[in-house]
Design a binder for these strands. Structure first.
Length: 281
DNA sequence: CATCAACCCTGAGAGC
DNA sequence: TGCTCTCAGGGTTGAT
């Protein structure tokens, strides 16, 4: 479940380097080893092998939950989906289970590996990154994403707020964890129709979204289930995976329901639905 | 336009 | 112990 904060954490690690490895920026890709073909969304494996070697990594950025490597001629774009991770390791190390794509680097005895247990992750090599990223909604942490901007967008639809926030074309970067956390912080029920959220509540939601994302980044993301990347935001969840435990605000027991086929955690007291049945016309 | 189900996958956990 | 079953999860696609 890498969401925006987890992808941002990985992005910074690759860009800035760590005790164990230097920055990837400026390095050249020597060769690629594609171990699971379906990981590659485009182009064909043959063209990928032909085009990638020799290209230099000019820049590493994040857009929504996508990692974007700007290369000499192309953009290398990765989506980690459920279980993906990127690791830098010695080029001669044994190849762990679930490695799907390995990029060997020039001039350093290192490789960059895409590990993805569930095989949902995808990689694109393209000269036209907008064809992959173009439908994404605004970046929630950008200054241009204001509370009023959010309110205006909420007004345009009657969709339930939780599935709407998960829709990457509405807003880029939220997944199940941070959506549940943000809705609880803003005291909004996940089924609330978006256009019933007034400017005041919209501002609370805007603030909550940015707060949980910034906290997630500050804690280096959340490590849950079998995916561990060193983050500890999971220790600060207010509702996510806390079914039956007390709400940090009011002490009522957190409930788990399904909303748009997604496991959803919320406080039955803090997050109440507007009285829809009283609405006329 | 909004909602829903199926699909892609694996491993963890439950039930037997 | 070891088998089988169910389920979670993001995003895409197609149906209602």
């Amino acid at each position: 479940m890498p969401e925006l904060p987890e992808v941002e954490t990985i992005c910074r690690l690759l860009r800035q380097g760590s005790n164990n490895h230097p920055t990837l920026t400026g390095m050249r890709i020597r060769s690629a080893d594609l171990l699971w073909e379906r990981t590659l969304a485009e182009p064909t494996p043959l063209e990928f092998q032909h085009r990638l070697p020799g290209q230099q990594i000019l820049d590493i950025n994040r857009r929504g939950k996508f990692l974007v490597f700007r290369l000499t001629d192309d953009h290398l774009i990765l989506h980690l989906r459920m279980s993906g991770d990127l690791v830098i390791e010695p080029q001669e190390a044994p190849i762990p289970a679930h490695h799907r794509l390995i990029l060997y680097l020039q001039g350093e005895p290192l490789r960059l590996a895409f590990n993805d247990t569930r095989k949902f992750g995808r990689v694109w090599l393209t000269a036209h990154p907008n064809q992959v990223l173009g439908r994404l909604g605004p970046e929630p942490l950008e200054p241009s994403f204001t509370a009023d901007h959010l309110y205006q967008r909420l007004q345009r639809t009657r969709r339930q707020i939780k599935p709407l926030l998960l829709d990457q074309s509405f807003l880029a970067g939220l997944g199940n964890i941070y959506t549940d956390e943000a809705l609880h912080l803003a005291k909004i029920h996940p089924l609330t129709p978006a256009n019933l959220i007034n400017p005041e509540r919209a501002e609370q939601l805007w603030s909550a979204i940015r707060h949980v994302l910034q906290e997630g980044i500050r804690r280096n993301g959340a490590s849950i289930d079998w995916v561990y990347r060193g983050g500890d935001f999971q220790n600060y969840f207010r509702v996510y995976q806390r079914t039956g435990q007390p709400c940090p605000e009011c002490g009522a027991l957190i409930e788990r329901t399904l909303v748009g086929q997604r496991g959803t955690h919320c406080c039955p007291v803090c997050q109440s639905l507007p009285a829809l049945n009283l609405r006329k016309e």
